[in-house]
């Protein structure tokens, strides 16, 4: 791997820090004191220093010399982790989770959660449809009851026709 490729996230971080530093120039005030830009500048400069040191550590030769100051950044745990993680599987989990968040805002929390639970469990290797589907629905309705009727926390009901359908459903099952 090219050396620069090994430090892309840190380089991106430095670019972002630079953008934010430039932004601080527009932060002005007539009130006294150090102003709204002072603290962000201090933190951003320290963050930039940290990122530069981090890049140096990642680019230096892999075998540390006796005078090395710090361990390589990847800990034993993360090294082990990277060896065992399945990227396709990770992205499946990520897509399902993002789909749940998007779905809950569009079709409402109740249908999105029921579908999410079934799909997530299936993707995670739970094969018993006859069990996961009714349990997912029951758990979703149960949680909806707890949050809407007991704790009085509102949940997204979706947009358009789904909003009406969800409200009607909650009315029918006696939660509203």
């Amino acid at each position: 791997m090219a050396p620069v490729a090994r430090v892309v996230p840190e380089l991106a971080g430095i670019v972002l820090v630079a953008v934010l530093l430039v932004q601080t120039s527009s932060l002005t005030t007539r009130a006294g004191g150090p102003g709204p830009a002072f603290f962000p500048r201090v933190v951003l400069v320290l963050l930039a220093v940290g990122l530069v040191v981090s890049i140096y550590q990642r680019l230096r030769p892999a075998a540390p010399s006796p005078g090395t100051t710090e361990e390589p950044l990847a800990t034993e745990e993360s090294t082990e982790w990277s060896a065992t993680i399945s990227w396709p599987r990770f992205w499946v989990g990520a897509v399902i989770t993002v789909g749940y968040v998007v779905g809950a805002s569009q079709v409402g929390w109740i249908p999105a959660t029921a579908v999410f639970l079934v799909v997530f469990l299936r993707a995670a290797g739970v094969r018993r449809w006859w069990l996961t589907i009714p349990v997912s629905i029951a758990v979703t309705v149960g949680l909806a009851y707890v949050f809407l009727a007991v704790v009085y926390v509102s949940l997204p009901t979706g947009v358009g026709v789904m909003d009406e359908l969800n409200t009607h459903f909650l009315d029918v099952v006696g939660i509203y």
Partner: peptide, 22 residues
């Protein structure tokens, strides 16, 4: 170990907290 990584992580958290109305 990894004091630099800790510093970066701390800095990211601080920057996140600065977003929005001062």
């Amino acid at each position: 170990r990894a004091a630099t990584a800790t510093m970066v992580s701390l800095g990211i958290g601080m920057v996140v907290a600065m977003v929005g109305v001062d």
